[in-house]
Computed example of a mutant assay.
Amino acid sequence: MAHALPLSLATQPLKQIAIDYTPEACSHCATSDTITLTYDSRGGARWRSPTRFQSGTFSALIRCPGGDTSGLNFNLYLSSLEGDKSQDEIDFEFLGYDRTLVQTNLYSGGEGNREKIHLLGFDASEEFHEYAIAWGSDAIEWRVDGKVVRREERKEGEGFPRKAMFLYASIWDASGINEGKWCGKYCGADEPYVCVYKDIRVPVVTADE
């Protein structure tokens, strides 16, 4: 029996962000509801929502950087706290070696290893597409342009994200992960690499500490 998701929960534009590092490589225009992340000789950058959320639907229109993006990871994800080894997390991750696919994953109490690869049917750098995470108490859906590409239901004895989470996005060099087998090896021939997010939407109700 399928569990219902809180699809009726209201969403609102994300008007404010916090920048975790390299603020000069992240620009935010609240008027146009657009955020850009740049990867170049300065490294990458990461932004997040100022508050945590307990559940709901999160979405953004994303246009990934073009050119030879091998080695880079760009993403949209929820995490209880980036860098915490016991984090809960729900991910959309673009693997720079191939922009025609996206990886989804989830963590509970720092335990992950639930990755799945999804073929998009398009190059994610050519135009904007909508990526959404619908997170409920009993199920999670990952959606691309309104289509559900993955659904995970809470199962007895299996970890499920429960902690209040921030919405994050970043661009970074992941060449060192699994000896370059995850995202490829970075070459940087087409710097700067710019990932653009717009129409970012988050739930109205927050559950910040």
Score class of each variant (00 low, 15 high):
1 M>N: 12
1 M>K: 05
5 L>G: 03
9 L>I: 09
10 A>N: 13
22 T>G: 08
23 P>V: 11
23 P>A: 08
23 P>M: 08
24 E>C: 03
24 E>I: 10
26 C>A: 14
26 C>Q: 02
26 C>N: 02
26 C>W: 00
27 S>N: 10
27 S>Y: 13
36 T>G: 12
37 L>Y: 05
37 L>Q: 04
38 T>E: 00
39 Y>H: 05
43 G>K: 01
46 R>A: 13
49 S>N: 11
54 Q>S: 15
54 Q>F: 09
56 G>Q: 04
57 T>Q: 11
57 T>D: 09
61 L>C: 05
61 L>P: 00
62 I>D: 07
63 R>G: 00
68 D>A: 06
69 T>V: 06
70 S>D: 14
71 G>F: 01
72 L>R: 01
77 Y>W: 11
81 L>T: 11
81 L>Y: 12
84 D>T: 09
85 K>E: 15
90 I>L: 11
91 D>R: 02
92 F>H: 03
93 E>Y: 01
95 L>E: 07
100 T>W: 06
101 L>N: 04
101 L>E: 10
101 L>I: 14
105 N>D: 14
106 L>S: 00
110 G>P: 11
111 E>P: 06
114 R>W: 13
117 I>M: 13
121 G>P: 09
123 D>M: 11
123 D>H: 11
125 S>Y: 07
127 E>H: 13
127 E>M: 11
127 E>Q: 14
130 E>V: 07
130 E>W: 03
130 E>L: 10
131 Y>K: 09
143 R>Q: 08
144 V>Y: 12
145 D>S: 14
145 D>F: 12
146 G>L: 10
146 G>P: 08
149 V>A: 11
150 R>A: 04
150 R>I: 07
151 R>F: 09
152 E>Y: 04
155 K>P: 01
157 G>W: 15
158 E>M: 10
159 G>K: 06
161 P>A: 06
163 K>A: 11
163 K>N: 14
164 A>L: 15
166 F>I: 05
167 L>K: 00
170 S>Y: 04
173 D>R: 02
176 G>Q: 00
181 K>D: 10
186 Y>D: 03
193 Y>N: 04
195 C>H: 05
196 V>W: 01
203 P>W: 10
